[in-house]
Computed example of a mutant assay.
Amino acid sequence: MDLSNGSTLKLRSGLRYRSAYDTNPLSSEAAALGYQPWVRTDEQYLGDLSATWSSSNDNLSLTAYVRNIGDNEHRTNATLNLIAQPMGPAIVSADTRLTEPLTFGFVLTARR
């Protein structure tokens, strides 16, 4: 969008869809003990917005952005570690990686 002083403003939005999927498999021993063989990650929608102002000579620009507007954190990977117990197996640790939470910021660019 052209502004009256010759500078420009660009608005952008994006929506990402990630379908449901199974993350790391458990060991065959864990599956044999009755644990589900996979860790399920549900479907997700992630939205982003940004606005960039550029000077009339393009020597200066400022971008403001917001990523993951809904602060929709979800598993991207999961690992479960099991040990045998007399009463049955027990989960002793679980490692999970999450997507980035709501993130926002500014980027200033100067050119000669």
Rank of each mutant, 00 (worst) to 15 (best):
M1L: 15
L3E: 10
S4E: 12
S4A: 14
G6M: 08
G6A: 09
T8L: 06
T8E: 04
T8Y: 06
L9R: 04
L9P: 01
R12E: 14
L15K: 07
L15G: 04
L15V: 10
L15N: 04
R16H: 12
R16V: 05
Y17C: 07
S19A: 15
S19T: 05
T23F: 01
T23Q: 03
T23W: 05
N24Y: 12
S27C: 08
S27K: 01
S27V: 04
S27H: 05
S28P: 02
E29Y: 12
E29Q: 14
E29K: 06
A31G: 03
A31P: 04
A31K: 03
A31W: 08
A32I: 02
L33K: 08
L33D: 10
L33C: 08
L33T: 03
Y35P: 02
Q36N: 15
Q36Y: 14
P37N: 07
W38A: 03
V39Y: 02
V39Q: 02
T41M: 10
T41S: 08
T41A: 14
D42K: 10
D42N: 11
D42F: 09
E43W: 14
Q44S: 12
Q44R: 09
Q44I: 05
L46N: 03
G47Q: 06
D48I: 04
L49F: 13
S50A: 11
A51S: 06
A51P: 00
S54N: 03
S55W: 00
S55N: 02
S56T: 07
N57D: 15
N57Q: 13
D58V: 03
D58I: 05
D58G: 09
D58H: 14
N59S: 13
N59T: 12
L60K: 00
L60V: 06
S61L: 05
S61G: 06
L62T: 01
L62G: 03
T63L: 07
A64V: 11
A64P: 00
Y65N: 01
V66L: 11
V66A: 04
R67E: 08
N68K: 03
N68V: 01
N68T: 02
G70L: 13
G70E: 12
D71A: 08
D71I: 07
D71L: 10
D71Q: 06
N72S: 13
E73V: 12
H74M: 12
H74P: 00
R75S: 07
R75W: 11
N77I: 07
T79F: 11
T79Y: 08
L80E: 01
N81A: 14
I83S: 04
I83Y: 11
I83Q: 07
Q85A: 15
P86F: 12
P89K: 01
A90M: 15
A90N: 10
I91N: 01
V92N: 05
V92Y: 09
A94H: 11
A94D: 06
A94Y: 10
D95K: 02
D95P: 02
D95V: 07
T96A: 09
T96P: 00
R97I: 11
R97W: 14
R97F: 15
L98P: 00
T99D: 01
T99C: 05
T99W: 01
E100I: 07
E100D: 13
T103M: 12
T103E: 11
F104E: 06
F104K: 05
F104P: 03
F106N: 04
L108F: 11
L108H: 05
T109Q: 13
T109P: 03
T109E: 10
T109R: 13
A110T: 04
A110L: 14
A110N: 06
A110H: 09
A110P: 00
R111S: 09
R111E: 05
R111C: 04
R112T: 07
